[in-house]
């Protein structure tokens, strides 16, 4: 399959997935570009151990998480230098919450939900995003995350519980 065919078949999936992690268009576009650069670089070595779609999903998730880690790292260094903080619990907050997939009148509610999702661990966040936003089945999600279905179910239950606690703390109703 040629690169441009792969791009146009998967770019919407990759972009929307990135959007769920970073919640703004500019960052999602940057991540999408990085994903396809990686796809281009590694296409020859792709050994069909999983489907192409699964492979691209994994790259997208890893790139999104790496982007968030890089943002957290910059934030931590900047604030640490000013306030001499050693707190390593800086969690990603979208600098510009501008998710185009939500209606304006519901922006505040969605912003609270995503603030809570952003505070979950990488695995829990990914499970919520794939199962509840991307509407993937448990089998598909387990394959993408390289887990068995039972482990995924357990992960999802923990994520759901933590999300509930966080939303309660934020006063979401």
């Amino acid at each position: 399959m040629k690169f441009d065919e792969i791009y146009f078949e998967h770019h919407k999936i990759v972009f929307n997935l990135a959007l769920q992690y970073v919640q703004n268009i500019e960052d999602a576009e940057e991540i999408t570009q990085d994903v396809f650069v990686k796809v281009f670089d590694n296409l020859d070595s792709f050994k069909n151990q999983s489907s192409l779609k699964t492979w691209i999903y994994r790259i997208s998730i890893n790139q999104s998480l790496d982007f968030i880690k890089a943002q957290n790292s910059q934030k931590r260094n900047f604030l640490s230098s000013i306030f001499s903080l050693n707190d390593t619990k800086f969690k990603y907050e979208a600098t510009n919450f501008n998710h185009p997939g939500i209606e304006l009148e519901q922006k505040e509610a969605y912003q609270k939900i995503f603030e809570a999702i952003n505070q979950l661990s990488d695995h829990q966040k990914t499970a919520i995003i794939l199962l509840k936003i991307e509407d993937k089945s448990q089998a598909e999600t387990a394959e993408i995350m390289n887990l068995n279905v039972k482990a995924l179910e357990s992960l999802f239950q923990r994520a759901k519980k933590n999300l509930e606690i966080l939303l309660n703390q934020k006063g979401y109703k």
């Binding site: 576009e29 936003i133 999300l163």
Partner: peptide, 24 residues
Amino acid sequence: NTDMKQVFEQLANMNKVEPSINLY
């Protein structure tokens, strides 16, 4: 106080977005 079923319904109702044509 949080109805998680409602939260997940809201998440599922989000629209998919078309990426910019310049992105390629």
